[in-house]
Every structure is written in structure tokens, then in C-alpha cells.
């Protein structure tokens, strides 16, 4: 009897303790998700009182909207920084792993862009890439290169965003790699050296395979993150740039919902995009067992 009472008390305490998480799940996840699915099949518009059920008409309209396709292409363009900062991040991590003096200071400096707010970075970037007086074009000019009009040409704005994101993410990527490098047991390298493996062989046969779990983790998280690029587009351009040349899917959805008040349409686009990301992630997990090292 006493034991049963104890069990009951523990279950009640447990339920009480997870309550905040459950409330959050129900009210800020489940409810909005259901509402989104429902709204995606209506012509919900904030400015119009009535809304009616229109089935999959929103989805058909999205597929026929040329802006959606431009935005989709730009969204995938935003994946370009990932290989850049992954490679450079690994390079810096390996350099830091060589027991260099002052590596603590280096680490703090490398964090700097990552911890800065994207708004502050964008403001800084606008000034650095100012076509006439910006530092970047002045340096380019010093080498006799005429710098492009970064902020007004959508093609160059996109390239500038790629540079900025690469710059922002190198440090944090290096830190992740560094933590994994430190976990590789030293005897592996010693044994390989005795067997006559040179440093290139050691890198490709030991380091890289043992880093695949962290590479997989970073790829998954960063692809999801990069596909949701929005703030840069909003702050660097007006209306997504000339010919919608910089706009991403999130920007497209945001514009539909908050500039045109087409809530139903925006929800449909959001669901489409959400499913796309989900599928992409699942595919990544599926092919991961082909290349990710899972330990002995």
C-alpha cells in the first residue's frame, strides 16, 4: 500500500514537472501546426472577413507563381557557404590542434562573428561593401580591381551574403571540429606512422573517417539553417532585390503573409517548404550509413 502510494506520488510529480514542456508543445506547436494545415486549404486573408474552403487551390497557385521558383533557386544558392566554411573550419581546427601558443585567444577571436547579432553584422557589412567608400572595394581598387556594386546588383548581393555567412560560421565550425579532433586517440596516429603512413595518408585514412559523425551533424543542422535564410534578404534589399533576385522561400512566405495579408496562401507555401526540408533531412539520414563512421 505504501509502495503503491509512493509510485503514485512519483508519477504525479513527474507529470507536473514535464508540464511546461507539454504546455509548450500543445499551445505553441501542435495548435499552430493544425491551424497551419487548416489555413493552407482556405483563402484566409486578414483584410477580408469571410474565409472559405478552397482545397488545394493555393498549392496549385504556388506552383504557377514564377516568383516562387526564383525564390526556391535563391534558397538553394544559400547552401553555397556550407562547403566553404566547413573546409576552412577544418583547416583552422587542425592548425589549432597543433598546440600553438595563444590558441585560447585565437578561439575567442574566432567566435566573435558567430556571437554577434545578424543585424549588427548586416549594418557593418553594408558599410564594408559600400561600392564607393567601403573598405572591400578600396582594397580591391588598391590591386587595380574595380569592385562591383555589391548592394544594388542582386547577383553580387547574393555573393556578398555567401561571403558573410562563410565568415560568420568558420569559427564555430572550427570549434566543433577541434572538439572532435581531440577525441581521436593518439595511438592511432602513432601506429600508422610506424607502419610508414605519411601525413596525407594519415589524414585521409584516420582523421577524415573519424570526423564523419561531426561532419554529418554539421551538414544536417547547417543545411536546415541555410535553407531558412531570411534576415539578410530583408535587411540588404528592398522587396527581395531587383527581379526578386535575392529573395528566398522564407522571404516569399513572409511577404505573402505580412505584406499582402494572404495568410492561407502563406500557410500553404510554408507547409510545402516544411515538407521539402523534412524529406531532405530524411534522405540525408538514409544515405548517412553509406559514409558516416559509426564506431566499432
Amino acid at each position: 500500500m505504501f509502495k503503491r502510494n509512493m509510485k503514485y506520488k512519483e508519477r504525479m510529480a513527474g507529470l507536473l514537472f514535464v508540464m511546461p514542456s507539454l504546455l509548450q508543445f500543445v499551445f505553441f506547436f501542435l495548435l499552430p501546426l493544425c491551424l497551419c494545415i487548416f489555413a493552407s486549404m482556405t483563402d484566409w486573408n486578414v483584410l477580408v472577413r469571410d474565409k472559405s474552403f478552397i482545397g488545394i487551390k493555393n498549392f496549385i497557385e504556388i506552383f504557377q507563381d514564377s516568383k516562387f521558383w526564383i525564390a526556391l533557386r535563391n534558397t538553394f544558392y544559400m547552401l553555397l557557404p556550407i562547403p566553404v566554411y566547413m573546409t576552412l573550419g577544418l583547416l583552422f581546427a587542425m592548425a589549432c590542434d597543433k598546440k600553438i601558443k595563444g590558441d585560447k585567444l585565437f578561439r575567442v577571436l574566432y567566435y566573435l562573428p558567430y556571437i554577434s547579432s545578424i543585424v549588427a553584422l548586416v549594418l557593418l557589412w553594408k558599410w564594408l561593401f559600400n561600392s564607393e567608400f567601403g573598405l572591400v572595394n578600396q582594397v580591391l581598387g588598391f590591386f587595380g580591381i574595380g569592385g562591383p556594386n555589391w548592394l544594388n546588383d542582386p547577383v553580387w548581393t547574393k555573393r556578398m551574403i555567401v561571403i558573410m555567412i562563410s565568415w560568420k560560421m568558420i569559427g564555430i565550425t572550427a570549434i566543433y571540429f577541434l572538439a572532435s579532433l581531440k577525441n581521436i586517440p593518439a595511438p592511432y596516429y602513432e601506429a600508422a606512422t610506424i607502419d610508414g603512413a605519411n601525413s596525407v595518408q594519415r589524414f585521409f585514412k584516420i582523421t577524415l573517417p573519424l570526423l564523419t559523425p561531426i561532419i554529418f551533424y554539421l551538414l544536417t543542422v547547417n543545411i536546415i539553417g541555410s535553407l531558412q535564410t531570411f534576415i539578410e534578404v530583408d535587411l540588404f534589399t528592398k522587396d527581395g532585390g531587383r527581379n526578386y533576385g535575392v529573395a528566398t522561400i522564407i522571404y516569399y512566405i513572409w511577404q505573402k503573409a505580412f505584406n499582402y495579408s494572404q495568410m492561407g496562401y502563406a500557410c500553404a507555401a510554408a507547409i510545402l517548404f516544411g515538407v521539402m526540408i523534412l524529406l531532405l533531412t530524411l534522405i540525408q539520414f538514409k544515405i548517412s550509413n553509406k559514409w558516416v563512421y559509426e564506431g566499432e
Binding site: Q24, F25, F28, F29, L31, P32, L33, L35, C36, A39, I224, L227, Q228, I249, I250, I253, W254, A257, F258, M263, A266, C267, A270, I271, F273, G274, I277, L278, T281
Partner: peptide
């Protein structure tokens, strides 16, 4: 809830 991109929840949350 970590698997769903935030944009899916954004508009309904606003509503």
C-alpha cells in the same frame, strides 16, 4: 517539434 521549420508555425502563431 524540433523537426519542423519555424516558418510553418510563424503565420498561425501570428493569427
Amino acid at each position: 517539434s524540433m523537426m519542423i521549420p519555424f516558418v510553418v508555425l510563424l503565420v498561425p502563431q501570428y493569427i
